[in-house]
Design a binder for these strands. Sequence first.
DNA 1: CTAAATGCAAACTATTTGCAACGAT
DNA 2: ATCGTTGCAAATAGTTTGCATTTAG
Lengths: 121, 121
Amino acid sequence: MTKYSKQILELINQSDGHMTAEQLFLELKKKEPKVVQATVYNNLNTLCQKGMIRKLSLAGSPDRYDKIHRHDHLICKKCGTLSDITFRDITGDLEKQLGEGIISYDLNIYYLCPKCREKSE
Amino acid sequence: MTKYSKQILELINQSDGHMTAEQLFLELKKKEPKVVQATVYNNLNTLCQKGMIRKLSLAGSPDRYDKIHRHDHLICKKCGTLSDITFRDITGDLEKQLGEGIISYDLNIYYLCPKCREKSE
DNA sequence: CTAAATGCAAACTATTTGCAACGAT
DNA sequence: ATCGTTGCAAATAGTTTGCATTTAG
């Protein structure tokens, strides 16, 4: 763990957990003015490989980096706003059907957020 | 529906449902030599908006375009190989917890595929 | 002393956009 | 005649890479 990767990990864990590489870069730059984007990307990749954070790929937006702790995502189909929810852990159910060996899963749920629902009425 | 969008939709529905824009472009080009990538992208976006196909964004690979019919994805954490599975539909469960208004969801399950499991032993 | 991490610039990939020409109503 | 679709080229966004330099164990 280097000084950058430590700080990046902290930023992610303190944040709402949906920060893009660019947002993290800008945040980190406040404390470490010399850091460059590539370094942030490199660190994010290493942290992912080590399983200390997870990467969230969503259609139409850059990758986001998230806390590792199990939770699911609620996404507005219209404006893309992302929020966390925790649906019950279905790993057990999945293993019943698919057999052992499941590492993890991503559950992304699409809906219309209150604001967008209002507008469309 | 134009001649291109019709053919693109057919290609997706006849395929295994995990084709990238580039693969679709190359396929379509066999029948329509004059088509260009941008047109394929434009058509894919329109088809998505109309809800006739769905876009699959996975870390580390270009977007893939999939049939709309409900199913889930099993992804090898190591080599990225993608296969379809159909876990039971949890929309009802989700609505119980989150309330009405869920449009759809994506469930991506990570595991080690047989080949990769072999290698790592 | 060595290996890993960084800064920098350039490369690269996937995707989108502007615009002129085309085609089907 | 009009409006959406296409081809084309260029632009953009996000991310990765190569390499020389710095840093930390």
